[in-house]
Computed example of a mutant assay.
Amino acid sequence: MTHDYLQVDDLLTDEDRAIRDTVRDYAQSELAPHVAEWYDEGTLPDGLGPMFGKLGLLGMHLDGYGCAGTSATAYGVACRELEAVDSGLRSFVSVQGSLAMYAIHRWGTEEQKEEWLPRMATGEALGCFGLTESDAGSDPGSMKTRARLDGGDWVLNGSKMWITNGTLADVAIVWAQTDDPSAGSGGGGIRGFVVPTDTPGFSAHKIQRKLSLRASVTAELVLDDLRVPASAAFPEVRGLKGPLSCLNEARYGIVWGVVGAARACLEESLAYTSEREQFGKPLSSFQLTQRKLALMTVAVNNASLVAWRLGALKDAGTVTPAQVSYGKYANVRAALDVAREARTTLGGAGITLDHTVMRHMNNLETVMTYEGTEEMHLLSIGADLTGSPAFR
């Protein structure tokens, strides 16, 4: 394929390629024809969870409890094929599997795992991940949501912002500052809670008027004297170690996903400029257009190599958070540059939903911000290089 200029997919295993083909065929036949309408309406169709569950995409890289247990690379390839259609679709799968399900799988009790993971793997139950707050984005340690012990229960108060799948979720993973004396020093007392969304005191409010990630449901969560039993808390993890481990999983999926968005923009740009004629010949025959196509091809393939390498490191169990930050920063930036360049090759046609490039471009503005802003990932790399954290 033209977009796979360096034949990176030849490095995939047969199983990886089989998953690639299955997800690509489904995404292109069942999702791509409708995504512009979903984006325009700012919604997602009912039943998307069970459809993704039937494909085995939800928590696919986790073991047991009904999860497929694929390689990290296979999960990345699936993210790539979903985001080639729209970032919102990859976000749906990413939040379900790499944030909500991963949190329970990594930090939950056996009872929590048995109760939620099998149903989440099939899409019968959907999850969301409540960490970010209006005043605590890049600095989650400053969160104001509180959980206090009251007898044998925890009582939660606060709010969470920009929560994907928030109004769709059956269960929310909520992180809160606690008065738990066992938290110790340095952890800030932050603990995670598995909160069924039908619990009294829980409400979710859809965020409207978005200009990006419109084919995705985003919400504010409000916790008003919400009472859960002691068994709702993750038993061991304290401080930011828990939520940051989940974010690292989600960031890894983004590293792959944005390659799909960039690839889609390149493919549309090449097809459009090959057909569109000006001054008596196709746009693709002009030197400046060919320069754009060549630069976009280099960017897509470089990003693809980064994703594949991080997948290999993750499958080997050696990838570091700083390396994932490298991939998230480099690949999102590359994808956004490709989308912007591709938009210019379509001229005025590029601003409509009849084409994909500006929808991808708008989405990538959000992807650049969530799961860690560019600034935070550069600081993570800088801290790893120098040994001197500069976050504060």
Score class of each variant (00 low, 15 high):
30 E>G: 03
30 E>Q: 13
31 L>C: 09
33 P>T: 00
33 P>A: 00
34 H>S: 08
34 H>W: 07
34 H>T: 10
34 H>C: 03
36 A>M: 14
37 E>W: 12
37 E>G: 10
37 E>S: 08
37 E>D: 10
37 E>N: 10
38 W>T: 15
38 W>G: 07
38 W>R: 11
41 E>P: 05
42 G>I: 03
42 G>Y: 07
43 T>L: 03
44 L>T: 13
45 P>G: 06
46 D>R: 15
47 G>P: 14
47 G>L: 09
47 G>E: 04
47 G>S: 10
48 L>S: 00
49 G>L: 06
49 G>H: 14
49 G>W: 10
50 P>R: 07
51 M>Y: 14
51 M>H: 11
51 M>F: 13
52 F>V: 06
52 F>Q: 08
52 F>N: 04
53 G>F: 15
53 G>A: 09
54 K>W: 11
54 K>N: 09
55 L>Y: 14
55 L>I: 12
57 L>S: 04
57 L>E: 03
58 L>H: 14
59 G>D: 05
60 M>I: 10
60 M>C: 13
61 H>A: 07
61 H>F: 05
61 H>G: 04
61 H>T: 13
62 L>N: 03
62 L>F: 02
62 L>E: 02
63 D>E: 11
63 D>G: 04
63 D>R: 12
64 G>L: 02
64 G>M: 04
65 Y>E: 03
65 Y>M: 02
65 Y>R: 03
66 G>R: 15
67 C>A: 06
67 C>T: 01
68 A>S: 15
69 G>W: 09
69 G>H: 04
70 T>A: 06
70 T>S: 07
71 S>D: 01
71 S>W: 01
71 S>M: 00
72 A>N: 13
72 A>F: 11
74 A>R: 08
74 A>D: 05
75 Y>E: 02
76 G>C: 00
77 V>F: 06
77 V>W: 08
77 V>T: 02
78 A>P: 15
78 A>R: 14
78 A>E: 12
79 C>Y: 10
79 C>T: 08
79 C>W: 04
80 R>G: 01
80 R>D: 01
80 R>K: 05
81 E>D: 08
81 E>I: 11
82 L>H: 07
82 L>V: 05
82 L>N: 05
83 E>R: 04
83 E>I: 01
83 E>W: 02
85 V>S: 01
85 V>I: 03
85 V>R: 01
86 D>Q: 02
87 S>Y: 03
88 G>S: 03
88 G>N: 01
88 G>D: 00
88 G>E: 00
89 L>Y: 15
89 L>T: 14
90 R>N: 01
91 S>I: 15
91 S>T: 15
92 F>P: 07
92 F>V: 11
92 F>G: 04
93 V>D: 07
94 S>Q: 14
94 S>P: 07
95 V>A: 12
95 V>Y: 14
96 Q>N: 12
96 Q>P: 13
97 G>D: 09
97 G>H: 13
97 G>P: 11
97 G>M: 11
98 S>G: 06
98 S>W: 09
98 S>F: 07
99 L>M: 14
100 A>P: 13
101 M>R: 08
101 M>V: 07
101 M>Y: 11
101 M>A: 11
102 Y>C: 12
102 Y>L: 09
103 A>P: 08
103 A>L: 08
104 I>G: 00
105 H>S: 13
106 R>F: 13
107 W>R: 10
107 W>D: 08
108 G>K: 02
108 G>Y: 05
